[in-house]
């Protein structure tokens, strides 16, 4: 009897060891994969850095090649965030503090629906519906605001410009910023809000005094996560933007982003060109990694009193 007990006990102990070992292995595997992503990209990109600068696309080295598309990526992400941030904070406030209580959960689903639509569908929509619709406004902008460098004409006749790509990107990052901000707005302590209202504050004053200070870190990290998405988004830009060299005007065809450059050229690339594109991917990886790490760091710094994580 005692024999069987100890037997099963030792078998159980072995099982414990094996299981915890497997779990630990799985956890380490994730770190290993992330490490591999960096190493393999670096390994495959290496020929670009050692190659003769004249052989690189553009003919004057990798950094001259990558610089315009890094700037293009940043421009597209900046447009997307400029449009999406105020709107998504407004939508989040609407759902958390303005909409009737019965509606607000349903509205949350509607915003999640926006996030569920695949990026290629947004790209298709941007290229067949949005771009033609924006030709008129672009022409008007070029005529009336052409003295501002970003609206310099002549406007694109297809509407496939940086501004269109930025607008499509803003539609795609909007649900991310909205749902994260909404979560945080809903966690504002009820007592703070009621105290503000009891002092005679209007609803807007209540939001400014209690909700925003509480949610500031969360909003910033939500914006950073949206930025990460906007930087890495590929299809929308690849389909909507007819790319080219770096130009200041946002309503002419031109500019390119890293992700779209890779997606458009990778299928036909080989040899040094392949290494170039992988190096471009490495640059994108480093940029988004930095953005995400900063976002997470902000969240973790404010972990105690905000539920943004």
């Amino acid at each position: 009897m005692s024999n069987t007990l100890t037997e099963s006990g030792s078998r159980g102990r072995a099982g414990d060891k094996v299981f915890s070992g497997i779990a630990l292995f799985a956890g380490c595997l994730i770190l290993f994969v992330l490490f591999c992503v960096a190493v393999f990209l670096l390994w495959q990109a290496l020929p670009t850095f050692t190659a003769d600068p004249a052989e690189i696309t553009g003919g004057s080295g990798f950094w001259t090649y990558i610089w315009p598309i890094v700037i293009g990526t940043l421009i597209a992400a900046a447009i997307a965030l400029l449009i999406a941030t105020p709107i998504s904070i407004g939508v989040a406030l609407f759902i958390s503090h303005y909409a009737p209580r019965k509606l607000s959960q349903g509205l949350g689903y509607v915003i999640d629906l926006l996030a569920a639509i695949p990026s290629v569908v947004y790209g298709a929509w941007g290229m067949t519906v949005l771009a033609p619709a924006l030709v008129g406004p672009y022409v008007w902008l070029a005529e009336n605001a052409g003295w501002i460098p970003i609206f310099a004409g002549p406007a694109s006749q297809t509407g496939k410009t940086m501004l269109t790509a930025g607008i499509v990107l803003s539609v795609m990052v909007l649900p991310i910023i909205t749902s994260l901000s909404r979560e945080i707005f809903l966690q504002t302590p009820k007592l703070h809000e009621e105290a503000a209202l009891a002092m005679g504050a209007t609803r807007w004053e209540m939001i400014r005094m209690t909700v925003f200070p509480f949610a500031r870190a969360g909003i910033i990290s939500a914006i950073m996560l949206g930025l990460g998405r906007a930087l890495g988004e590929t299809m929308a830009v690849a389909m909507v933007l007819s790319g080219g060299g770096l130009i200041a005007s946002l309503i002419k065809s031109g500019n390119q982003t890293i992700a779209a450059e890779i997606a458009l050229n990778f299928p036909e690339a080989f040899g040094l060109r392949l290494a170039e594109l992988i190096a471009a991917g490495l640059v994108l990886f480093v940029i988004t990694l930095a953005v995400n790490m900063i976002a997470r760091w902000i969240v973790s710094r404010h972990k105690e009193f905000s539920g943004a994580n």
């Binding site: 890495g232 590929t234 890779i262 594109l277 990694l289």
Partner: peptide
Amino acid sequence: FVDVMTGIPSIVAGLF
């Protein structure tokens, strides 16, 4: 790093 991985651009995952 799991949090950071959530933000990897999909094209970079493809390149990897």
